[in-house]
């Protein structure tokens, strides 16, 4: 564990996608769990280099999409056929083909709203503050610099060893982060 009490983790800066890709492979292979890479754009294949699992998001969207779809076709049938039955245009009360457009749009609506909110909720955003924001160098993360941060709570974390690992992987800058 950490030697300093007021230590959140270590931040290391890399200069390009290639460097961070190689560094992530090393951190992954060293067996770290609580660490992250921050990049200005999704670097192709970096999720594999970090050993990340696929996102759960599609399953949530599928569930809510099916729910929304089923809800709308049932609602339309109930509203048109049972709640206030009126014959319009000579169509039967349960006129499924005429229900399709709204049914379809509702499916899209439920799925997309779910995808939108799940994305932020699963990612723990909005989160106004993060320890990395304390670093001046980290302001370039949304521009052209690439970062790895390892949290002090990681069982493998050792300030000197972790720093040496990140440095050895080609970091151009290594900083300690406070919470």
């Amino acid at each position: 564990m950490s030697t300093k009490s007021n230590l959140w983790g270590v931040l290391a800066q890399y200069e390009n996608p290639h460097a961070i890709y190689k560094a992530c492979e090393q951190v992954r292979d060293a067996g770290y769990e609580q660490w992250d890479a921050c990049v200005p754009f999704p670097v192709h294949g970096l999720d594999k280099a970090m050993g990340l699992k696929a996102s759960k998001l599609p399953w949530i969207v599928l569930t809510m999409g099916i729910f929304g779809s089923a809800f709308m076709v049932l609602f339309e049938s109930w509203a048109m056929g049972s709640a206030y039955p009126i014959i319009v245009g000579g169509k039967p009360l349960f006129s499924l083909p005429a229900f399709v457009p709204v049914w379809y749009e509702a499916t899209v609506l439920f799925s997309c709203v779910t995808a939108f909110f799940s994305n932020w909720i699963l990612n723990g955003l909005p989160r106004p503050h993060h320890p990395a924001f304390g670093s001046k160098a980290f302001e370039r993360v949304t521009d052209d610099k690439f970062f790895i941060m390892v949290e002090a709570t990681d069982p493998k974390f050792d300030l000197e060893k972790t720093k040496a690992l990140l440095q050895g992987a080609g970091a151009t800058l290594v900083e300690e982060l406070e919470p």
């Binding site: 992530c24 992250d36 890479a37 921050c38 990049v39 200005p40 999704p42 670097v43 970096l46 999720d47 970090m50 990340l52 696929a54 996102s55 998001l57 599609p58 969207v61 899209v108 799925s111 997309c112 995808a115 939108f116 799940s118 994305n119 932020w120 699963l122 990612n123 955003l125 909005p126 989160r127 106004p128 503050h129 993060h130 990395a132 924001f133 980290f138 993360v141 949304t142 970062f147």
Partner: peptide
């Protein structure tokens, strides 16, 4: 929203973006 470019976020983000595209 406090976006910090985390690759863990990008993975979910890109999935959400793909799904929004696929529905759009």
């Amino acid at each position: 929203l406090g976006w910090r470019g985390s690759m863990r976020h990008w993975v979910t983000y890109e999935k959400a973006y793909q799904i929004l595209a696929a529905f759009s």
